[in-house]
Structures are given as C-alpha cells and as structure tokens.
Design a protein around this nucleic acid. Structure first.
Lengths: 340, 340
DNA sequence: TTGTAGGCGTTATCAG
DNA sequence: CTGATAACGCCTACAA
C-alpha cells in the first residue's frame, strides 16, 4: 500500500520567466502567444528563459483568463464494442489526434451510449469544451442538434438527419465510390454480382447500397442479390451464407466494408469456393484488415486517417472563427489486390 | 460557409448564486463542495438558487484555485488499430468512463504509438492531468516509469517490467485462469490438446501460456502443440492452420483470446472439422465476440468492464490520497457454451 | 515596444 | 456557521 507521489514541485510561472528574463509578465505573455510586438533582443532573452526554466503555460489559468476550455470532446454515441471494433474509427481517431497534437487543444472522451447522462450534457453544454467531434455511424441524436447551438460540431460522415444543413462533416461520396467498386466487377466480366450492404439506417450503409445498385442497373444486371450486415465481420459471414443459399451461382460480391468482406471470404472458403476464381470480392475502406488478413483484399480505399485529420482542421478553423465549408468530400479510389 | 455560434451566454457564477440566495460566495462554495458547516436553511436556499440558475462550477477556475486539473489521461501506447480492434480494451474503457462519470474528473485521450511526442510528455508531466491510466498489452515503456514519479499511474494488466513494484494495476490471475480453461478440456477427455498462445512478450500472453502448459504437464499430456498469435482474429486463424498442419490429430485447443478462438473456429470449419465434435475450442475473455458469432464460444470469463471500473476506483482513491493496494486481482470463471 | 493593473471564477484562510 | 479577502496563473486594455 502507498499513496500518491508527494513531490510535485511547483511549475514555473510567467512571473518566474519574467524575472529570469528581466522583463514583465506581459512581455513574456506576448512572446508565448506569438505577438509580433516584441523586440528581437527581448524575444531572444525571453525564449532563452523559457527554455532554461522549461516553462509551459498553465492551462487552467489560460482557460480562465480567456474563457476557452482548450478542450474538444470526442463524443461516441455508439455502442462501445461496435465503435472499438471498427478499424475505420481507429483511423479517424488517429487522424484527429495527430492533427490536434499540433494545437493547444486536448481531446476528452465522451461515451454516451444511446442517450447521454445529465452530467454529460452539462459538461458538453457548460463551457467545458470548445467544440465536439461526433464519431458514429448513426449520429441522428436529438440532443446533438441542441448541442450544436452551443459549440461547433464536426461529424465523421454525413449525419442521418440531413434536414440539418448547418452540420459540419467530412465524408466520401459513398454512392459514387460503391458504384465504382461494383463497376470494377462488371468490367471484369462478372455476371452474377451480389451485394453485401451495410445497415440501411446509416448513411454510409444506405448510400453505398444505392450506388452499387445504380451501377448494376446501369449495366443491365439484376439488383436483387442483396444481403445486409452491420459492417462487422460476423455479419459479413452471415450475409454471405445467406446470399449463397439464395443465389448459388453468385460469382462476385461487392461488400460495403472490409470487415464484412473478410467474413464473406471465410464463408466462401468454408463452402469450397475459390477467391477470386469462383467468386470475386471487392471490399470497402482499405483498412489495415484489408491487407493484414491471409487474403489481400481488393477494395475501395477511403482516406480514413486523413478524414480524421481534416475533421480536426475544420474544427480548429471554426474555433478560430474562420469561415468553413460545411462539408468536405474526400477522394476514393480502388486498390487492386488479390480478391478480385 | 459559416462561423461558430456566437450566442454563448455567460454561465452563472458562484457570485450570481450567492446573490440569488442572499449569502456570500464562500457559503455557496461550501454547499457546492459538500461541507457540513452549513445550516439547514441556508443549505436549502443555496441549493434552490443553484437549481434555479442551473449553476455548474467552472472547471478552469476550480483547477486554478486548488491546483488540480480534474483531468485524468488515458494513455494508449499501442498501435491504434490493435487497441481499437480489441473488445477487451473497449470494455476496459467502458468501465473506466462509467466510474469516472460519478466523479468530477474528465478523461483525456493520449495516443502515444510507440514513443510519446515531446508535447505529450510535457502535457502529462506538466500538471495538466492528475493521473493516468495506461491501457496496453505491452506497457513496458521507459517514459512511463518517469511519469510515475509525477502522477499516479494505473495499468490494466501487470506491467511487463515488473521490477517496478510501485506500479498499480488490476488484472486477473492469467496463469490460473488459463490452467482452468485447459483443465476443462482435460476433464472432458480430450487427448490431444493444442494451445494457441498470445505473444510471449506480453504478460497476458506469457502467463496464459504458462498456465495452460502447467495444466497439461500436470495431467501428463504433451506440451508441444503450441502456436502463437497476437490476440487478433486473423492471427488465431493462422495459428490454427499451423497447428493442424503440424498435428492433424489435434482434438481440442485452448486459445488465449476469444478473437483468436473465432479465427481458429473458422479455420476448423474450412477444414471440415466439426466444433466441438472433432475439435473442442475454449477461448479467453468472454468478450461480446464470444457470444455474438455464429458459434457460442465456451470461454474463460474475465470481468473486463469491472476491471476498468476498478482501475478508476483505484485512481480516485489515489487522488484522494487514500492508501491503495498496488494490485487488484479479479476473479475469473469458465462460461460453458457450444464450442467445448 | 514595454509595463501596470484589473479581472477571469474558485478555493482557502482568516476573523467574526 | 458565515463572510471578507487574498491568492491561483494568465490575458488584455490602457498607459507610458
């Protein structure tokens, strides 16, 4: 048994730096905040003092003085295991933190499951964060609309309730990207193309399905070979079984996520179908899962980490009060590997 | 295009509440902080005012005044996709946040990949957080040792470098739990028992392997049917293939994680072995994956979410300056389902 | 270009 | 039990 370390030496303050550099607090403050109103010699002296003392500004004091929290929330209105299970989210978070690392902002984690607690609401709306990222496939939460009146919100992916035109988000053109992935199969002469779609109640699910169906229809193919999953691996396996049972002659599938595609491939092998020989598979995401498994997945690449970084950039711009486009649609492309 | 919402009305302060209740700031402060030094009538009046104004204390001011940040870091010194891919971590984080929700503390996310940036180090050591959770399978980072001199650290799982006896952690008895899981197979008359172990350079990997081997040896069984994975599903599949190739007569496997067990099951099916008929499979974790797949996994349950909650409780105790046991070992048990 | 002074919202130390 | 009053560390007019 033991208690906390007690030797927390007091950190140097502006005052200390000022003394060391032989100037006033104000001057040091100016230097710290990058004001141009400082003479070169003084600048140099102050910077030296800062280095010498290993000074770093006190966040609390800063927050208090300028009425900003210097914190941004990462709101996850998603079942935790789903959020954590999806490599897409991992990349998004990675991108956000990478970008935020170059700023003074800190990311605070807010798991809200379905509906947020009283405490969370107060936290979010009580001036404790300057903005919030909403990381979710769903994101149709009513409380988020209210929150948006208070602080800037940036979503990953177009929010479901798009009657809200003031939402900020970064996304890809899911329909077009899915159409492209499907067209890839068409172009390679596949005749009986199936679709493993995501949940129709999520934008990414619905849009990808729509795009894929559109491509099939345009090519005069049947559009009834559709099964649904929830983006997870097991759901992909289940959907593949379903598809095979209903349409044994299926010779290819466009799958709305890599995770589902991997599940699909495992079922195909279980049933003795070769990939891509008997059945070609195109995934979506180009997540690590696509290239780490024992089959290299041909898939529609979306720049997940860059999307996270872009979310952070939008947020930082908003917080600076700069004008920002409400949506940022990023590029996708097909990555050819072994599964199709 | 648009800018941030501008109507952020000033939040009520202690001062305002004091005015409304007809008392001084000090008194309100006492009420807010649950001091017993307040007369019932005053208490009532103040609480009423707080409710009426929807007052909530300003964190920055509080931090500044009492020199605590009211923030705890969640440090993830792990490849992001691995962290996010593991339902065990999801449960841990869930448990931590659930417990923290009842406190004044906020959780800030710190992805450090391999080695933390200068900025992260300054953040962590610069009084910006009052403590840190270290969430990782590895956790043998040299900088964490230094950090521990500054703020209390609580690990999930015994840290690798156990020459550090002052570390706080919550864990299960991995060796005993794995021995139990293996014994389960022995008791059911399985003759050729294989092991799919986790990485030997991680405590959970090494200890589970050790326990499993111990049980086999005690029962006079061979201990050479071992393959290694990294806890992920694909690695489990790979290991199962390896095992089957080397020992085709294997009739059961103890697998050190549910994810790997699922991978193993998929390979078994691919190879036409029935589960549990031909080959029985026991997993480890009892994560959602164990019961959500198309086979219900028999597995060693560890109370992941409770472990996260316990981590938070330890941290809160430490921050209160209370004495705390350095380690908390939680109970495991076998959950019988369909795979063995 | 630099310094002075006041204030941000709390907590803590005193008196009363 | 309650109320002044002085910090906490920083920012920002305003003055010099």
């Amino acid at each position: 048994m033991s208690t906390v370390p007690s030797t927390r030496r007091a950190a140097p303050t502006l005052e200390a730096v000022a003394a060391a550099a032989g100037v006033s607090r104000s001057t040091v403050s100016r230097v710290v905040n990058g004001s141009s109103q400082v003479s070169p010699q003084v600048l140099e002296a102050v910077q030296e003092a800062i280095r010498a003392l290993n000074y770093s500004p006190n966040r609390a004091a800063r927050s208090l003085a300028n009425n900003r929290s210097l914190a941004i929330a990462l709101v996850i209105p998603e079942e935790t295991s789903r959020f954590f299970g999806d490599p897409y989210f991992a990349a998004i978070v990675q991108g956000i933190t990478r970008e935020l690392d170059t700023s003074d902002y800190v990311l605070t984690l807010q798991l809200t499951q379905s509906r947020p607690s009283e405490k969370t609401i107060r936290y979010l709306t009580g001036g404790n964060v300057d903005g919030a990222f909403v990381a979710s496939h769903h994101s149709g939460n009513e409380f988020l609309a209210a929150l948006q009146e208070t602080i800037p919100l940036v979503y990953n992916g177009r929010p479901m309730r798009f009657d809200n035109p003031s939402a900020y988000f970064v996304d890809v053109d899911n329909a077009a990207a899915a159409a492209g992935g499907t067209q890839y199969l068409i172009d390679r002469g596949r005749q009986h193309i199936g679709i493993i779609a995501g949940p129709p109640d999520m934008p990414a699910g619905a849009d990808r399905a729509k795009g894929s169906v559109r491509a099939l229809a345009a090519a005069g193919r049947g559009i009834d070979r559709v099964a649904y999953g929830d983006f997870s691996q097991v759901s992909g396996a289940r959907a593949m079984r379903d598809l095979l049972d209903r349409f044994p002659d299926t010779d290819s599938v466009f799958v709305a996520s890599d995770l589902m595609a991997i599940g699909a491939v495992s079922v195909l092998r279980e049933r003795g179908r070769s990939v891509p020989g008997d059945v070609a598979v195109v995934g979506f995401d180009d997540s690590p899962a696509a290239s780490n498994g024992d089959i290299q997945l041909t898939t529609v690449h979306q720049p997940s980490e860059a999307m996270g970084a872009k979310m952070a950039q939008m947020m930082l711009s908003l917080l600076r009060g700069e004008p920002v486009e409400h949506q940022c649609i990023m590029e996708t492309h097909i990555v050819e590997r072994d599964s199709a």
